[in-house]
Design a protein around this nucleic acid. Structure first.
Length: 477
RNA sequence: GGCGCCGUAGCCAAGCGGUAAGGCAGAGGCCUGCAAAGCCUUUAUUCCCCGGUUCGAAUCCGGGCGGCGCCUCCA
């Protein structure tokens, strides 16, 4: 088996083949950092992370880059409202978005290029496009890409440009374009741009880059002329990615991307998330409401990335329970004392089978929903085996633990759940003291006092589990 | 109008031609001082509806009905 990914351009499941294995170049369209990122953004980021992690898990040497857009119409407007330059305005948002990503266990990218750090390159790309006859400047100092000069235009989205000239796209503002479908590479400066320092010198006068150009320039500068994988939200297929292909291939003459991967949009509490409906949710909000990062992560992974996912708080509660089950299983495996070393039981066989199943469902276009099912089947079978009374050997437990941790390298659930379950040492002392008192009460068969202590601990989020080996405690929701 | 997706138990969600995974929730049992955790049993004879193809369909085809996305800034 090997990884198959759905490729938007060919509209089919395509075997993943990087140009220069074992290296993989992975580029993802990141957010525009004019506001907090919402949970929908994070579904995309999490899918980027899932692919990133799975490629690493599969043995590839992944070079992952995600851009941050810090100059565009909305950013300029917001910065002006705040009376700041775009740099001042966007900086904190960019920082916060990455902090929240870290909280969700998203592995860092190799680089997070900012659009405004690549102005010179964008200018030189624009010049090259004009030289190639693919672009033209207008009297007002803007530059447009000429779609008519790129016959492939529209292929990614599956548009037939001859017949599908959509009426709605005729924009009266942009009368200077030779063709209404042409898109802007360089925009001439308006006074507001200067105010927020979103304006640069260019051969066509003061101006700023068009949004589409940055990804072409940054991805190629960071990763080379042909990317193995380019990811983004489904909304970016057209026109953003379509435009990227046109610009990039017009300049390099090489195929821009080998695999286009697009993430389906998230639905929140049953309806599309939008600012106008006022139903956007940020990760920060959810954390403040008391949901743990691992539960958020679990829910976002519970549907395959090309399926619609309805994100709800109710399901977040269910996800938290599911995460707890994983954590409890790991605790159980880690709590074995001395075990015989000279043997191997059924548990090892179960573990081995699990890994190969995990691999095969993940290879099938990152079917995280089914991969999670593989995890839970494993937990179920392993628990059953541990309860069966048959001999357990050290190697079995080691292998099971290894299997769990290996899958978690991709899921990233256990690792972040453990972080949120950490407890400070003064609290720990307090818990241990009460636990001693309770054990003494239990020995004296003073169950009323024992249960009272258990309830008190539970009200502070500490759950107890009595077993033959003693009482175990854990932090719980 | 154009392009595309989806409709599977109370909820979430796999399966995509061979007789319904998994999670959450519920019920009964084992274990326990009681719990918790874990295990066992149980919860869709059936996959929106109607036709068709097939030995066989949730899975393929046609037609309905219902929900949604993109085509415009948007992950």
């Amino acid at each position: 088996m090997s990884l198959k990914l759905y490729d938007t351009l060919s509209r089919s499941l395509k075997r993943f083949e990087p140009a220069n294995p074992p290296t993989v170049s992975l580029y993802a369209c990141g957010p525009t950092i004019y506001d907090h990122a919402h949970i929908g953004n994070y579904r995309s980021f999490l899918v980027y992370d899932l692919l990133h992690r799975y490629l690493v898990w599969s043995g590839y040497n992944v070079r992952f880059v995600m851009n941050l857009t810090d100059v565009d119409d909305k950013t300029i407007l917001k910065a002006a409202e705040a009376g700041e330059t775009i740099k001042e305005y966007t900086g904190p948002f960019g920082k916060q978005i990455l902090e929240d990503a870290e909280e969700l266990g998203i592995l860092p990218a190799e680089a997070y290029p900012l659009a405004t750090d690549y102005i010179e390159e964008m200018i030189s790309w624009t010049q090259r496009l004009i030289e190639n006859g693919m672009a033209y400047s207008t009297a007002d100092g803007s530059v447009y890409f000429s779609i008519g000069s790129f016959p492939e235009y529209g292929r990614l989205k599956g548009l037939d440009l001859e017949t599908a000239t959509t009426v709605s796209r005729v924009d009266s503002d942009e009368y200077e374009k030779e063709d209404v479908r042409d898109f802007v590479l360089w925009k001439t400066t308006k006074s507001i741009d200067e105010k927020v320092e979103a304006s640069w010198d260019s051969p066509w006068g003061r101006g700023r880059p068009g949004w589409h150009l940055e990804c072409s320039v940054m991805s190629i500068k960071e990763l080379g002329e042909t990317l193995d994988i380019h990811m983004g939200g489904e909304d970016l297929v057209f026109p953003h990615h379509e435009n990227e292909i046109a610009q990039s291939e017009a300049v390099t003459g090489k195929p821009f991307v080998r695999h286009w991967v697009h993430v389906k949009h998230l639905v929140v509490e049953g309806s599309k998330m939008s600012k106008s409906l006022g139903n956007t949710i940020t990760v920060r909000q959810l954390l403040e409401e008391g949901f743990e990062p691992a539960a958020i992560r679990h829910q976002l992974l519970s549907a395959q990335y090309r399926k619609e996912l309805n994100f709800t708080r109710k399901d977040l509660v269910a996800s938290a329970s599911a995460v707890q089950r994983i954590v409890d299983f790991e605790t159980r495996l880690s709590s074995f004392g001395e075990l015989p070393v000279d043997g191997e039981g059924e548990l090892s066989a179960i573990s081995l089978k699990t890994i190969s199943e995990f691999q095969s469902v993940m290879d099938d276009d990152l079917n995280s929903a089914e991969a999670l099912a593989v995890l839970f089947v494993f937990i179920n079978k392993a628990n059953g085996e541990l309860d069966s009374g048959s001999d357990i050997f050290q190697g079995d437990v080691d292998r099971a633990l290894e299997t769990l941790k290996s899958m978690d390298l991709v899921f990233g659930l256990l690792s972040i759940a453990k972080e949120t379950r950490q407890i400070d040492s003064s609290m720990e002392v307090w818990v241990e003291r009460l636990l001693d008192e309770r054990n003494e009460a239990r020995q004296n068969r003073d169950f009323q006092r024992a249960d009272q202590i258990r309830d008190e601990l539970l009200s502070k989020g500490i759950a107890l589990e009595d077993s033959e080996g003693g009482t175990r405690w854990k932090k719980s929701g």
